[in-house]
């Protein structure tokens, strides 16, 4: 399908069967502050998108609108064909398919790792407890942390907690995963263990939108890299073109700052 791989700041993407997320002419304000301006974006099934940009550019807000952690005031977002608006049923349906991994993990501190993982399958998917436990152990093994299943989050390192958070999302068997700066709260030596898990996920074909400044990760797995500034998508391109031949001056400046050290 012809989904924009070059810079698209104005063009309305045509929704297609393969698009799992379509954002069209979406605007968001915090009071008088215009946070997101005329965002147009479509994401194909299995696509990996990395979003970067200076702080305050609206990149986190953008992915947070995609599972309605943030509202928007105009335009439309469709996820998996469902209009994401005020309708509570739609919101719950979308959230069952879209999971979010947070900067600060947001594990539930009063539950063990295993309980954190089985909670949503049991209560939302109505899965029997035994089955949910098996599922949880499967994903804990995949993020290589199965031996910590009966500990509490507070007893784990940051990297371990973030891997648990990823496994918790996977237990919902989502179609799409959103990552909101998943490694920025981690000590440097723990970044790799989390990125490794994310790379594996990407290679298995998970649809991913990832707000991150890990440019190595972007180069390795991204199908498209988006640069945002002041609430707008400034540049959107494949990683090769994005890093080797950025078109906008703002992108060039950002890349020079972020890659210089």
């Amino acid at each position: 399908m012809t989904v924009a791989t070059e810079t698209t700041t104005g063009a309305v993407p045509s929704p297609s069967k393969e698009d799992v997320i379509t954002v069209s002419k979406m605007n968001k304000w915090y009071g008088n502050f215009h946070v997101l301006k005329d965002i147009d974006l479509s994401v194909r099934k299995g696509e990996r998108i990395v979003i970067c940009g200076p702080s305050g550019s609206g990149k986190s807000t953008l992915i947070r609108t995609m599972n309605r952690l943030e509202t928007y005031q105009s335009g439309e977002i469709h996820v998996d064909g469902i209009l994401l608006g005020d309708d509570v049923k739609n919101i719950e349906a979308v959230r069952r398919e879209v999971c979010m991994v947070f900067q600060h993990f947001n594990l539930f501190p009063h539950m063990t790792v295993l309980e954190n993982l089985t909670l949503a399958p049991i209560w939302v998917r109505k899965m029997p407890k035994k089955e949910a436990n098996d599922l949880a152990m499967h994903y804990l093994q995949r993020v290589r942390i199965a031996e910590q299943a009966h500990k509490y989050p507070g007893q784990l390192s940051g990297g371990q907690q973030q891997r648990v958070a990823i496994a918790r999302s996977l237990c919902m068997q989502p179609k799409i995963m959103l990552f909101d700066e998943p490694t920025s709260a981690l000590d440097p030596e723990m970044v790799k263990e989390v990125l490794d898990v994310m790379v594996e996920l990407a290679k298995e074909g998970m649809t991913m939108l990832c707000v991150t400044h890990e440019m190595g990760f972007a180069k390795e797995v991204a199908d498209r890299v988006i640069f945002m500034d002041a609430g707008q998508i400034v540049e959107m391109a494949g990683p090769q073109e994005f890093f080797d031949n950025p078109k906008s001056d703002r992108t060039k400046l950002f890349l020079s700052q972020i890659l210089s050290h």
């Binding site: 599972n67 719950e92 959230r95 947070f102 600060h104 947001n106 539930f108 949503a120 939302v124 919902m172």
Partner: peptide, 16 residues
């Protein structure tokens, strides 16, 4: 705040 958001993004209902 993050605890509310995590619960929301796992699609738990308000009462859950």
């Amino acid at each position: 705040r993050g605890q509310f958001e995590a619960a929301d993004s796992l699609s738990l209902s308000y009462w859950q």
